[in-house]
């Protein structure tokens, strides 16, 4: 689960303004692979800026999966039925797995997972801003599945065709596994909407709180997106922010009607001329301030990840120490 508003410029590491001075023959080969719709593999030559942009995007994506375990994980202990508890654990677990596959893809570019995690915990790396909002009720779990994962799928499916092979392959595995995430969320909401008045109010309240955040997840309008054009040309990004957002809205409105909830936008209506739904203005100021660190849960999310990482240090060291001793014992026995 994650979405488009990735590849967020990192102020600590500005993207190089000039193309790197590469061997023209290598650059031509690289460009030829891209324009032929081919894939770049880990050991192939690639421009430094391509490598850097990919690394930033993939690691931000991986961080989003890991931080994204927290808002939903918040409800595992209180899931109101055993079936929902099992589904939620399996889903949060999948997100951990997706983070793992993505860190793996980033590692093929020469990064180390430990360094990427250090950057996240030090506040030097970005992740999807959506996870900086709180999950306040059980219905939030369903709404996250339906809307947040729904938005993520919109973005992730085109990424299965990403020009970088290891990333594209990770995305294929992720999309396969994610296919149940949105369905389980929507189904949980359907059951609640057929239930008591209090359950229906919980669902509507959660939709009211998450709808605009989900629209912002697709990132600022394409005109404002600094990396968009280059990433499109490189095949790292396959569709524009606005195009994906529109696709998401068009797909979601009928789903909301079937569910029986109201999407909290009075300007939301079908535009026959465009063949799409029109929507009201998104509060980009709030998006930017959340991304910059001033959302309701930014500090809590990072502090929680940092504490888990610190609490686990001795566990990781114990395994390494044992492995080394085993190796030494084997060598000792051999001589």
């Amino acid at each position: 689960m994650y979405t488009q508003a990735m590849d967020i410029p990192d102020p600590a590491q500005p993207a190089p303004a000039t193309p790197d001075l590469a061997d023209p023959a290598q650059l031509a080969r690289f460009e030829a692979v891209l324009s032929g719709g081919g894939r770049i593999e880990a050991q192939d030559w690639m421009p430094a800026a391509y490598r850097k942009t990919l690394l930033r995007q993939i690691s931000q994506h991986a961080h989003s999966e890991i931080v994204g375990m927290l808002p939903e994980g918040n409800w595992i202990s209180r899931a109101p039925s055993l079936k929902r508890k099992a589904i939620l654990i399996a889903k949060v677990q999948d997100e951990g797995g997706h983070g793992l596959y993505l860190y793996g893809a980033a590692e093929t570019l020469g990064a180390r997972r430990a360094d990427l995690i250090d950057a996240l915990l030090a506040g030097r790396a970005k992740y999807s801003s959506i996870f900086n909002y709180p999950t306040l009720g059980w219905a939030d779990v369903g709404v996250i599945g339906w809307l947040v994962d729904g938005a993520a799928i919109m973005n992730q499916i085109p990424l299965c065709r990403c020009s970088y092979g290891p990333y594209a392959r990770a995305m294929i595995r992720i999309c396969k596994e994610e296919s149940f995430h949105q369905r389980q969320g929507y189904e949980a909401l359907l059951v609640m909407m057929r239930g008591t008045g209090a359950q229906r109010r919980m669902v509507q309240d959660a939709v009211d709180r998450w709808w605009w955040k989900c629209l912002a997840m697709f990132g600022p309008p394409d005109a404002d997106s600094e990396h968009g054009a280059q990433s499109m040309r490189w095949g790292i990004k396959r569709m524009g922010n606005d195009e994906l957002r529109q696709k998401f809205i068009d797909a979601t409105v009928p789903q909301a009607q079937i569910l029986g909830v109201t999407l909290p936008d009075p300007q939301l209506k079908w535009n026959d001329e465009r063949g799409h739904y029109d929507h009201g203005p998104i509060d980009w100021e709030e998006f930017r301030s959340t991304l910059a660190g001033d959302g309701p849960c930014n500090r809590e999310r990072i502090a929680t990840r940092a504490e888990a990482h610190e609490n686990g240090r001795w566990v990781r060291e114990a395994a390494l120490a044992h492995a080394r001793k085993q190796q030494q014992r084997a060598q000792g026995a051999g001589t």
Binding site: A90, L100, Y101, A170, R173, R316, A319, L320, A323
Partner: peptide, 24 residues
Amino acid sequence: HCGSLHAADAAQALRLARDVYTRR
């Protein structure tokens, strides 16, 4: 080939691969 993971030793890698890559 289905992916990679981190593990301290071979036995652990095998066990963790079961949990990471064969959940379905």
